[in-house]
Amino acid sequence: MSLSVKNLQKSFGSLHVLQDVSFEMEDSSIVAILGPSGCGKTTILNILSGIMRADSGDLAGFEGKRFSYCFQEPRLLGWLSAEDNLRFALSSLLRFRKESSSLEWRIERFLRESGLFEFKGYRPNQLSGGMQKRLALARAFAFPSDILLLDEAFSAVDLRQKIELMRAFLRLWADEKPTVIIVSHDIHDALFLADQVVVLSQRPARVEGSLHIDLPHEKRTFASPELSRFEVELYRLLGFDHLDNPVPRC
């Protein structure tokens, strides 16, 4: 294990958000943090990326790593085209001679991979919600990073767009294989994408359990029998005793 999070605690005033969050992950793996809405998943990503400080706890293996972040909302500059939004986020690369030469190439490549190359001149308000999400995902991938954080990157889109987004994600990830931490409240995001799933409790969050999914991505399809055993285990960790009678534990 090369990255670890130990005893993370965070409160906002009297609101206790993270109680005791600890988990470990492999380099270049995809880890999904699963938990109910409002349990503090985004807070974990903000702490890992340095946007926010934890009240206590230790992070090991994150030092000196370069982060990229696909935020819960696209956070695009409305007055710039899709292409210029990427150029803006990658402008720090111009400082480095080696990376600056690949800047335009990266922009074109990630726009193509996310299926947005034809729309490169469009501004965000001219793109659909799903396309904006794809653009934010392309931006996160285009920025060279060691650790990529994705916050509900696949939510609030319809099923077709979600599958497209997930395919785009796997295509993009396969190339440079950064360590990815996905935060989601949807069990399917974790089942289709993650090598490891960390399940959080209701707020204040603590880790209920961790599950390793050792199944290649190409074998993970909807209603695939290979995935069902992992799905059952995840439901159990989330507090649902049986799929036919999904009553949460008290």
Binding site: S49, I51, F67, S68, Y69, F71, R75, F88, A89, L90, S91, S92, L94, R95, R139, F143
Partner: peptide, 9 residues
Amino acid sequence: QMAELFHVP
């Protein structure tokens, strides 16, 4: 916040 995370000058 987004711009700072991407180290935009």
